[in-house]
Design a protein around this nucleic acid. Sequence first.
DNA 1: GTGAAAGCGCTAACAA
DNA 2: TTGTTAGCGCTTTCAC
Lengths: 350, 350
Amino acid sequence: MPRQSSRKSAGKLPDIRAVAAMAKVSIATVSRTINNSPLVSERLKKRVWQAIKQLNYLPNTHARTLVSGRSRLLGIIVENITNPFFPELVQSFEEIAVAHGYEILVSSSSSDAAVLATCARRMLERKVDGVAVMTFGEEEPVLDQLVHRGVPIVLAEFKLDDPKASTILLDYSTGIHAAVRHLADLGHRSIGFLAGPRSLHSAITRENDFRAAMQAAGLSTQKKWTIECDHTLKGGVSGFEQLRRLTNRPSAIICSNDMTAIGVLRAAYMAGLRVPEDLSVIGLDDVDFAEYTLPPLTTIRLSRVDLARSAFEALRLQAEDPDNPRMQREFLVSTSLVVRGSTAPPKTKA
Amino acid sequence: MPRQSSRKSAGKLPDIRAVAAMAKVSIATVSRTINNSPLVSERLKKRVWQAIKQLNYLPNTHARTLVSGRSRLLGIIVENITNPFFPELVQSFEEIAVAHGYEILVSSSSSDAAVLATCARRMLERKVDGVAVMTFGEEEPVLDQLVHRGVPIVLAEFKLDDPKASTILLDYSTGIHAAVRHLADLGHRSIGFLAGPRSLHSAITRENDFRAAMQAAGLSTQKKWTIECDHTLKGGVSGFEQLRRLTNRPSAIICSNDMTAIGVLRAAYMAGLRVPEDLSVIGLDDVDFAEYTLPPLTTIRLSRVDLARSAFEALRLQAEDPDNPRMQREFLVSTSLVVRGSTAPPKTKA
DNA sequence: GTGAAAGCGCTAACAA
DNA sequence: TTGTTAGCGCTTTCAC
């Protein structure tokens, strides 16, 4: 009776020993060959590759990880919310990672401590080479688990005083300034702002940048025209309605994120207002869907690709060169304005 | 000089041996305990768990995989297209898998043979316990790689004659019949259909189901009113425009997927037509964004959660009970109509 | 340059 | 019930 005929159909899969035997070399030489070690002669290299091909050999990642300590596995933790920005970010991160021979483990945190603890555990058990923490929120103490075990991490908009931690700074300012200028150039004088929840660091930054941009454009801001929303579509709807009740209304609205802007689009539609003729709207993020709204949304792009690339780069530097003291530990991701169809000159200059 | 002070900060992480030492048992007992083996006495179990907690011990997945042959890793291959249905499906699959203690590896196939080969390799090297092939297209010969190595796979709308392969059948008919009946009840008599590319098996099925549903509702179909599109937003736009050029136009359009429907929404808006007053539109998929379109899209839901759940279940059955000859090998996922704002009675009954 | 041999941390067969 | 032990497939000294 065969030992484990059940798991694999054709008996045993070829292992490094089989390759070595076929190529008539030691397993060390096979290992060196597949790891591109320079100390293998061309002659043997060729024999080994030939055997590998012939046997259809694939190295076993788990065995490699076990002995080398490196898994080529990266974790990414995002918020478990309805904002499509996060799934899109994960996808970008994944693509970049895979292109570099890494796999990724995804965790949705939902900012619940127990869930987060499980996240960390999953990552730790699989021996990830690094974790990108893309929650943009208050960073939970669970991260200590990771840091404590010496796992490299990279955080968005949050600095951690640890040699294994890197930070990605987001420059919202550039994009927000461009947005305000765009509106000002169009002739808008009164611009409202639907802010994100003040509990979010990023939301506060965006709001401050908006105010600074208005000032820079020589436009005055009105307290009433800045409303705290919650970064959801519903929040956008209610934000619009609050603005709508005012007697003196802005002719354009900049939103702290795209979902809010999409809420405004919907609310305006319901109210019989035409965008951009009656009201200009600008979002922030540039989620994939921003292109498909009616009208297509003018928005401030926060490039998920740039963000993902920076996160990956930070992690890879740490993973592949852990002892370099002068490694880059801070990364900057910029924003830019994408003009589509939701902005136009105001009907009457205010 | 410490051996590998560089990788981990606090020397060596606790391993199964450390736990065994602390609990004063053998490593076998520790292994049995963490694997819930019934043959460990409560007394020892307790001691072991205590030691585990105290040492903050986490078992090493790679070591477990290496010896047990099971990785608790599942692969999923989807098409690399802009249709948001696929990322959403991946997310559902992921959630279910994680809830059951599995991790997933994602591959976007882009139906390029070389890319697909890499997909298969990634999965094979990481020793996945199964692969969900959610391409809905012609299934590439690369799958043989997987099948040949005895990896369980599950396919959508495609049967493979292999004991390790399962199939998920999609019942579009129910949803499409409901959609046609909904339109008929509203008073529509003339209904157009924007089909998917005929190269896709699923697109053809949907088209046939539409015809059958029309017949069942006692409505006649016109050749001109069925147009082959490509399941993209652009395709929807051009499909709408073709319909628009006709002298005798349908008062409602059913689309083979949501992206097409969203294209119709946009094209109608551009043409100055109001949806649903001037034209009713129905999609298929119920992507997340269908809720956010203007107006919110009435659509035929193809539940990604159901699909993901079936795929996971199929794989898990195979992975955890590989030798059961009478295992369920076929799964059925149904569709249903979700009525939102893009359908209404026609202005004038045709 | 190349090979022999010592594990990486764990599970499972076998012994007791 | 519990412990002892032989590997899982690979990388990496160390010796030649």
